[in-house]
């Protein structure tokens, strides 16, 4: 082990750790002797069991946030634990809405930098070298902190495969957060869930995504139908999310979900760098695009140059006819 202690911000949804959280804990276990986590929520004590299975020996309970957005309180809890206890060598956050906000607040509070968009980490003594995919995943930039712990990393989903450890006993301590005043002013008034059916986009073995090349919003149904025939999840490029054809939760790419399915089918998607970073890790890629120069063809295993509005219905028929 090259590092003494790593902290992980553990995020939960429906009382279960997010997949990204399990990925971060797995990575932390490979680099440090001691892994500790921070979490917020109504019943954080109940999280100790599952976190223990992933090698967490101490859980800082930030408590219910009473409607506050998490960033300020998470950062305060960590900063206060650093000053009253001891600083970790590194802190891992997921590239999630709240992970990014928390890392940014903490970085400014401690006046230490943060390395974002990390897709891999390599230990070099007590330093971690972070790999970051640039230019749509064409190049890998490796960077590190010049000095001063803690090294703060914001890590993209699917960068590590989650793996439980032999169960450890996880002690729960309460993390004190003093009154934050104005920075804690933003409050959640209500939460809205956009329903979607079928497998989760970031976990499905097959993803079929549609883009602007579908031509019109109702053709997205073709994408949904093909996805369901393949037991997959429908996804989208940002162009059609911005245009309001599908909700944001469908977006694949830099600002959307990172997917690594067995099969990714891109329909009418050009393959902009920001889309590619979210899907280039797929095992097999199929592209349907009428422009044979579209960048997506440079990464696909099988491509058809042609009109998606004709090809996809024919494909659906052919699959149904089998």
């Amino acid at each position: 082990m090259s590092l003494g202690k790593i902290w992980v911000l553990a995020e939960f949804a429906d009382a279960k750790p997010t997949t990204a959280t399990l990925e971060l804990l797995t990575a932390a276990n490979t680099f440090a002797d001691k892994v500790e986590a921070f979490a917020w929520g109504e019943g954080v004590v109940n999280y100790a069991g599952v976190l223990g299975d992933y090698g967490v020996s101490k859980l800082y309970d930030i408590g219910s946030l009473a409607g506050s957005l998490p960033g300020p309180k998470v950062a305060a809890a960590m900063a206060e634990a650093i000053s009253s206890d001891s600083a970790p060598d590194a802190i891992f956050f997921a590239t999630s809405y709240d992970g990014r906000d928390s890392a940014a607040r903490l970085s400014a509070r401690l006046s230490v930098g943060v390395i974002t968009n990390v897709v891999n980490l390599v230990a070099n003594g007590s330093e971690l070298n972070a790999e970051h995919a640039i230019f749509g995943g064409e190049m890998i930039l490796t960077s590190k902190f010049a000095a001063a712990a803690p090294q703060i990393f914001v890590i993209r989903a699917k960068s590590f495969a989650p793996e439980a450890k032999e169960a450890a006993n996880c002690e729960v301590v309460s993390a004190s957060v003093s009154d934050l005043g104005s920075t804690d002013g933003a409050k959640i008034v209500s939460s809205h869930v956009e329903e979607r059916s079928g497998p989760k986009l970031d976990e499905a073995p097959v993803v079929v995504s549609g883009g602007r090349g579908l031509g019109q919003p109702d053709r997205y149904q073709l994408v949904e139908e093909l996805a369901s025939l393949l037991n997959g999840a429908p996804g989208a490029s940002r162009a059609i999310v911005d245009a309001g054809w599908v909700p944001y939760s469908y977006q694949v790419g830099q600002t959307g979900k990172t997917v690594k399915p067995n099969l990714y089918i891109a329909v009418g998607i050009s393959g902009a760098t920001q889309h590619m970073v979210g899907m280039k890790g797929s095992k097999n890629i199929v592209a349907i695009n009428k422009d044979k120069e579209a960048p997506i063809f440079q990464v696909c295993d099988f491509g058809i140059v042609g009109d998606a509005s004709k090809i996809v219905p024919k494909l659906i028929e052919a699959i149904k006819a089998r």
């Binding site: 930098g113 064409e138 890998i140 930039l141 490796t142 960077s143 000095a147 890629i285 440079q298 295993d301």
Partner: peptide, 17 residues
């Protein structure tokens, strides 16, 4: 606080059909 250690080309995907 950050330093670049290295830059390299990512593994290219095999060209498909």
């Amino acid at each position: 606080g950050q330093q670049v250690v290295s830059v390299r080309k990512a593994e290219a995907r095999q060209a498909g059909t």
